[in-house]
Design a protein around this nucleic acid. Structure first.
Lengths: 204, 204
DNA sequence: TTCGATTTTCAGATTTCATTGAAAATCACT
DNA sequence: AGTGATTTTCAATGAAATCTGAAAATCGAA
């Protein structure tokens, strides 16, 4: 039977709900992906692998998400580069399977790392270059040029600080976030979440 | 003469360099804008106002950036909503002038605030919703559904923590970043900046 | 209130980016 | 090496975001 690996003894209704919930998550994560400048499909593939937790092959992903083979191939490659999924081989099966990193923090760190690489580092480089471009503060009365440098430096310092901070978290062994965050999260500062923690259960 | 407000006694070459450097900054900031999912023009307008520090009217912006009137109008409106620029009126002049917030940190906070609003909050809302969608852990053997909830909760907690942290910084009076960052930046953690601090001058 | 200067709006043109699909390349196994 | 299954690449297509420009609305001054 094709039911194998994927289907424990679960009622059809419950299974439908499971799939529905997964799809919702995939859709949300995909939407966020676009907002973040990541292709929607790439985000969806990741969401699918993360939320199911199971290794899946190209065809399974294609089918579940309804996207083309080429698209899956490219998305999977990027995700591998990001280090948020990994290849898994099944003995006696030629297909490649992919599985998502299951530790949330390591995953979030990977995302942060990539985003900094794409969104901040190039700007810092550009700022350095520009700073060197216009250093001729020949004489007095060059008020504007000095002002330019001041602003460039301020921006650079700002982003530099953020980057340093972020690297500490995003770095390979950045255990930092959890602890640091928890630490900082303590002091009261007008928390403003609009919806409450509505999770029930957990009881038993 | 038209030279007025904008032109102190500066040599033409120095002025050219100034403009060149400004343009480079504008271009870089604009490029980042696209990466961030902000329209390039909006980012460029902001860059222009920030780096010159001067209030400018629609026509000046149009001319300097070479974009249409409508585009400037829309960009300026968004920037006002973000709270990173403000209107300035000159007595006896009907035109509206715009000036960028000059404090870097307040500016960075504004940017962070907007990005969280667009990039994280909707995801958290969606996660809550999904969590409620599939709560029927009817019996035992519903391993997969429990696993789903576990993953949803983990992601939600992760982002929740990040959001809390970020709100602390991005909040209206979030003096936090500077101090907190400086604090955290102290402990040594394999700084990896690829280029050195090359700013000279500052001497005299 | 009237008038002209200024700003806003928005349908259509343009540009940018993601996706497809099929051909080419790769690869595991014999 | 040969073979067929699997993956990768990439030109062409499609979709989405952005921008323009001119008409309509707004606004301040007289």
């Amino acid at each position: 039977m094709a039911a194998a690996r994927n289907t424990p003894d679960t009622s059809p209704e419950a299974r439908a709900q499971l799939l529905e919930a997964q799809d919702r998550f995939i859709a949300s994560w995909g939407r966020m992906g676009s907002v973040w400048g990541i292709s929607r499909t790439m985000a969806e593939v990741h969401a699918l692998l993360y939320i199911t937790g199971q290794p899946m092959c190209t065809d399974e992903i294609m089918e579940r998400l309804g996207v083309s083979r080429g698209n899956v191939s490219m998305s999977v490659r990027s995700l591998l580069e990001w280090g948020v999924i990994e290849k898994v081989r099944h003995a006696g099966d030629r297909k490649e399977y992919f599985q998502a990193e299951q530790d949330v923090w390591s995953m979030l760190r990977a995302i942060a790392r990539e985003r900094i690489k794409r969104e901040v580092d190039p700007l810092l480089d550009a700022l350095d270059e520009i700073g060197e471009l216009a250093p001729q503060v020949e004489a007095k009365s060059q008020e504007e040029i000095r002002a330019l440098h001041k602003r460039l430096d301020e921006i650079r310092d700002g982003f530099g600080l953020i980057t340093t901070l972020a690297h500490k978290f995003a770095g390979p062994r950045g255990a930092g976030l959890q602890t640091a965050a928890r630490l900082l999260a303590k002091a009261p500062v007008g928390r403003k979440r609009t919806h409450e923690r509505t999770r029930k259960g957990d009881a038993s």
